[in-house]
Design a binder for these strands. Sequence first.
DNA 1: CGATGACTTGACTTCGCTCAAAGACAGTGG
DNA 2: CCACTGTCTTTGAGCGAAGTCAAGTCATCG
Lengths: 248, 248
Amino acid sequence: MPAARAKRESPFTFHVPEPGPSLRAIPSGMAPNKDFVRLLSKPQKLALAGIATRESLPARAVIYRADSVAEHVFIIERGVVKSFRDLPSGKRRIAAFWYAEDIFGLAEAGRYVNTLQTITPTSLYRLRRDGLMEMLQRDPELDIQLICKMAHEIRAAYRHTILVARRDAPGRMVMFLRTLMEQRHDTNSDTIDIPMTRSDIAAYLGISLEAVVRACHKLEKAGVVDFVGRHTAHVRNHAQFEKIAAAL
Amino acid sequence: MPAARAKRESPFTFHVPEPGPSLRAIPSGMAPNKDFVRLLSKPQKLALAGIATRESLPARAVIYRADSVAEHVFIIERGVVKSFRDLPSGKRRIAAFWYAEDIFGLAEAGRYVNTLQTITPTSLYRLRRDGLMEMLQRDPELDIQLICKMAHEIRAAYRHTILVARRDAPGRMVMFLRTLMEQRHDTNSDTIDIPMTRSDIAAYLGISLEAVVRACHKLEKAGVVDFVGRHTAHVRNHAQFEKIAAAL
DNA sequence: CGATGACTTGACTTCGCTCAAAGACAGTGG
DNA sequence: CCACTGTCTTTGAGCGAAGTCAAGTCATCG
């Protein structure tokens, strides 16, 4: 009974050892490798915790809507959320999925750019914008961490654009699965947990729901990836997997 | 003789009244409208000018290559540059075009993410990373300006992803022309200056060169946009133009 | 256990891609 | 000043991949 997934609880559930919000990113500066780094110091976390309220949300909860007044910024402690916009045509485009230790709340002219909604049960820190700004005025070190995190997001956005520009659905799917793998703690596992629905994946990849299903099917027939149930995949042929990811 | 374009000199040539580098963005915070704002104060510009060297480059000059060691950050004073990556397939994907008062030099683990190349003759400020970091340590106000600029870039990247995810070439073209219009000083002009080649546009839109040409042709036949020469367009039917832009 | 939403599969259409070849432009040197 | 040359652009024909529509299955939650 391989489809038995206990309760749709995601494995993106890092136990945060220290109290207070946590942020991670791959630094821009010189580094031996491309590993994630914890950005915030213990006192910074505590200071942020001081101005934050913590809340827990069930799956499918809307955190805020696009174009509503942006008064908060959020940092995820546990869970997965999606950031999307519904287009005039009725189509939905998911700009990003956010996981533990990510920050979100992007605004333009005082209003949120995207709608944010939980995918799994989520707990997060809610920070008032003005409170955060005050801290940023005082602690330049904190600003630099935030700049690092934002640089990380810009790079992720570039990759997403490259992904979406691909023409072949299986290729997009493989690139997407790769980004999911990077979220894992134990990187050398073949198992990929897929917390979001096929429909969410379609909205993120910029293809139709059916094309996602067919791409999965194709990858399975080619012996590259096994999909077991709706929320788990296993990489069978790593060489082929990487080859497809790099193809276009 | 409408095709007579004097010397390929772009109109993205803002006269910078004050000395030193300049940055602009649409702020995240509350604002009456979505207008660009000059981010740097006069003393900040002077301080940045103090640690910068200024250089002028002809068109088609490579500023730096992807994966080379990232030692500088650049701010454009005048001109247009493209930021791109060549994919294993030989295809090229342009991540962004940068104009006057933009900053670039994104790195990951000490190496540049994209290759940067000038499109028009360009003059820019070159800042050493360590020098800039030092300034950021001292002046939290400067950090906040930079954060604002980066937030702007993230929003632009989201829009680009939405653009690239569209299926119809004319729609992508119109969205692209719209972003070009936003670069202009006098916003209520119908004339759009297109400094880059069709091939660059194709690499940015994620479609083939031929598809770009056909999209332009189609828009012209539909009476929405006139293309005069290779580097100028006129919006003929604004209503239709906006409708196509918002379609998907 | 039943209902709702998520997923899968098939048939047909559409649109952009590829390949190929011809036309227009801009910068060069005579 | 002009012809030249390489690059950039335009146009055409045929192919393939993803979109859409429609029908049916599965699973998850109350």
